[in-house]
Amino acid sequence: MSAAKPRSDVPHLAVTDLVAGYVPDVPILRGASLRVDDGEIVAVLGPNGAGKSTLVKAVAGLVPARSGDILVHGASILGLATHKLVGTGVAYVPQVGNVFTRLSVEENLELGGLGGPPSRTRQRIAGMYALFPDLARFRRLAAGRLSGGQRQMVAVARALMAEPHLLMLDEPSAGLSPRMVELVFQKLLEIRAVGVSILLVEQNAKAALAICDRGYVLAEGRERFEGSGRDLLASPEIGALYLGATTRLAS
């Protein structure tokens, strides 16, 4: 069901000068650009209201783009219906409401693998239980009855069912205990190791910068800084201006 393996020299995702927002004439993104290359973990950081979530929602087709472009493997996906995004090899894990709470864990995973042959879906589900052993124990349980961390695992596993090349996560650490954040981010490294690139929108700058290859700092709807995780983490200017309390804790 997923797109053919793309050339590795073309970015998985390239966003250029994107202007987007829920209401016409009130753009939240005001010309944002970023790219995710093959095998990268890219973090998008910034203060509240900077447009981090809007950026991934615009890629997912949930927020209309007014101008600029969004390229997946070199092809524009502007105007693509949300339900067709998964077919381009991009999977998205929203920040809230990212599991079907009334459906069982296994049903959540099945729906993530829609469109593939049933034998492939079963094989993928087994793969997800190997990656997230906890989930196998709760396979028949309604996802709404799981803890926040377990739900996040279901959400990520559900997204991976479609065999994406790029996984977009909107604040996977929100509401999780520090130990759980560490566990989730450890899983992201494992996921990248099997060839899935990751675009990570995070409030928790310290945790995100620790695992990312590159990061962007977004403010007022545009990217203000771009650099390696280490550089961004070390920059006092960025910490003070844009990353707020989380980096003060880090330093």
């Binding site: 079907f100 459906l103 099945e110 729906l111 993530g112």
Partner: peptide
């Protein structure tokens, strides 16, 4: 699959779309 998709849409249409439904 269609029945499960219906339950998914009834609970969270936006996530259903994200799932490719």
């Amino acid at each position: 699959t269609l029945g499960k998709s219906m339950r998914a849409v009834s609970e969270n249409p936006s996530l259903a779309r994200v799932n490719g439904i």
